[in-house]
Design a binder for these strands. Structure first.
Lengths: 162, 162
DNA sequence: ACTAACCCTGGTTGATTACTAGGTTTAGTA
DNA sequence: TACTAAACCTAGTAATCAACCAGGGTTAGT
């Protein structure tokens, strides 16, 4: 059972909620059209069961999962695994991909020496999207990411901490 | 006089602290080698004065600013504006650029259907770095960002919310 | 001395994250 | 018709943290 660490606010933070959601969605995708129970997902991925339940509910309300109650019930994908990106999972759970002090990047307004800072934040969001809106569940389950994404992981120092 | 909104945890969040820090650093860079007082920075950029003071202190301890006390005192850059990237400012204030549930991306460990999820998070961090480790204070003040960054801001839909 | 500036310790308020508890409803099976 | 397995729902909680503010101490020019 994990350590259930609490979040810290920093530049990019993948919350436990999102991390668990993506892992569960991968496991559901991997089961094909057979429904998978919340408990099976929790134990196969090592996730806190009750927390996962509420996440699965959110994903259903977001239109990403279909559920069936009762015995022989469980969850399955609402559409094909290749039609669900990581961004599709993040946004209904955690909100927009990028914000600056609570504002969308395009809504910021800078003056004086920092006048061009807005362009930097827009570029940050754009670079994020070039990964999260491109990688699908099918890609992750198959272990074959798009080449533009693979290129990022094979860059010099991509795996070192800084 | 801003609204002083509180932060929400989501994928990319530029905190008020970082936003203020970058703006202040831009204004200091813009002043050349003349020292600028905290009060002048606060009023020229519209930042909360006492909060800014503590941020400037952090930046000094991080080796990015040099300060002088007393009358005719103030802050100036510790090194050339073209040698200070946005990532240099973020890291001492908010910690590492990317974390997953409190872990660095390369320290995560996934099994089963989600085994390749780690690559996605590493790619996300890598794409972030390709902006934040490349843009310098000199670029922002001059309004001339590197072409690889400009390319991101001119992509289709780069300025729309989603 | 006076004063303008940085420096330092500490506190507050409200929000959020990462969960848990416990019951209600639905739907197959004996 | 009971039984049971599963989804569903409404709460609630502890710890953490962001985004500030107050107030005094220290340094250095005039």
């Amino acid at each position: 059972m994990g350590t259930y660490a609490h979040g810290r606010l920093l530049d990019v933070y993948i919350s436990a909620k999102v991390d668990y959601a993506v892992r569960a969605m991968c496991a559901v995708a991997d089961a094909g059209d057979r429904p998978v129970t919340a408990e099976a997902l929790a134990s196969s991925q090592g996730l806190p069961p009750k927390f996962l339940e509420s996440i699965l509910n959110d994903l259903r309300r977001a239109g990403l999962l279909r559920s069936q109650r009762g015995a022989e019930g469980g969850y399955r994908l609402a559409r094909a695994a290749k039609e669900i990106t990581v961004a599709d999972i993040i946004r209904p759970l955690d909100g927009p991909l990028a914000e600056v002090r609570g504002l969308r990047p395009e809504a910021t307004n800078y003056e004086g020496a920092a006048a061009h800072l807005q362009d930097v934040w827009v570029a940050v969001r754009s670079s994020l999207r070039s990964v999260l809106e491109v990688v699908t569940l099918a890609d992750i389950v198959a272990g074959k990411l798009p080449t533009s994404v693979v290129r990022l992981t094979t860059k010099a120092d991509a795996w070192v901490s800084r």
